[in-house]
Computed example of a mutant assay.
Amino acid sequence: MKFHTEPQLSFEQQNKIGILLMNLGTPDAPTAEAVKPYLGQFLGDQRVVELPKLLWQPILRGVIMPFRSKASAHGYEKVWLNEGSPLAVFTQRQCEGLRARLPDDVFVEYAMTYNKPSVPNVLAKMKANGVGRLLVVPLYPQYAASSAGAALDKVLNELTKQRNQMSLRTVSRFYNHAGYIQAVAAQVKAYRAKHGAGDKLMFSFHGIPQFHHDKGDPYPHECRATAKLVAQELGLSDEQYIVSFQSQFGKGKWLTPSTQTLFDTLPKQGVKKLDVVCAGFMADCLETMEEIAIAGREQFHAAGGEQFHYIPCLNDNPDWLDALTDLVKDNLQGWLQYNL
């Protein structure tokens, strides 16, 4: 093991508190050339695809990356913002919003599990600025090994290379955090007050393979718990909302019900007006803006639906930034010598 060479700092200089927000990652541009290496990192992670490397890597590099990169790039073109990738733009704004709500001597940064800004580079920056106590917050309310687990792996692996290791705290999930639940409920309520309420509210979460759950991943339980808490906050009955799982990939069995399947079947069951909120995504991205807001709307209308409302993610909503600040403060107890 080769350890990093680190700056010589005094105890006072190397004991600052740092907050690291983590999100999935995004290509640098909406092009197949930029998407291809990003997909290689993402789908090459065994936390995401649990197949032996000797079996999966030839398929990934020879089939998946060349063809899926073109389709993904086309999707990114539809949602790309003037400032860049939506996921990167909103994650940066969340970082800035949190930084503004914390004391000046708390160092706040963000990194991506895949692509840039990378965990090694961001941790090196934090280390050089004297961070010796680190709180890592993956921006995934519901824990899945393929999302929060993969993000924490990157941090933990990098810490094994530090000669003078940081003290570490992590927030692996916050699916039932009161501030988060209230922020999602307020977002839904405000949207419906402006645009009207549909026949049913759909909570569409990112899917995972069924065998991940069978092996002990708690993700679907936490998704349903979040939906129930938000529904209670909104005063909805069980019949007024539904939980589904999107972004299925490959031919294996995934969590059900499928969001895309429901887009076809709900209109036939009398649900002509549908509201969709992606409460597990803390920032709008390809999976919410293209897969749900664009393709999902087209699919729902083609199946006989009359009204489709996509409710945006929390993004840089002040209610969510306040909740994120409370979450961070809760997990900094004992590290700060004064009252936050």
Rank of each mutant, 00 (worst) to 15 (best):
S146G: 09
L286Q: 05
N121A: 15
A32S: 13
V35L: 08
V155Q: 01
T256D: 05
W56H: 06
F211I: 10
T113E: 00
L51T: 09
I19Q: 09
F263A: 01
P52W: 01
N121Y: 14
D275F: 10
F203L: 04
P141S: 03
E6K: 15
G235R: 10
N315Q: 02
L236D: 00
I294G: 02
H206C: 08
S204W: 03
L43H: 04
A124P: 11
A73G: 12
G40S: 12
T26C: 10
T5I: 14
L327V: 03
D316C: 09
D153V: 14
F205K: 05
G334L: 07
L152Y: 07
D217L: 06
T170D: 01
V328L: 04
K228I: 01
A151P: 02
A323K: 05
W56E: 09
G196F: 09
E239L: 09
F42A: 08
D326S: 12
G179D: 07
H206G: 07
E158N: 14
G179H: 03
V171A: 06
L168K: 13
S118D: 02
L266C: 08
L21G: 09
V276Q: 01
L139M: 15
C95P: 08
L54D: 00
L234F: 08
L9R: 10
C223H: 04
W335T: 02
L55W: 07
C285M: 04
W56R: 05
R93Q: 10
E96H: 12
A151G: 05
E83A: 14
S147P: 08
A183N: 06
P209K: 05
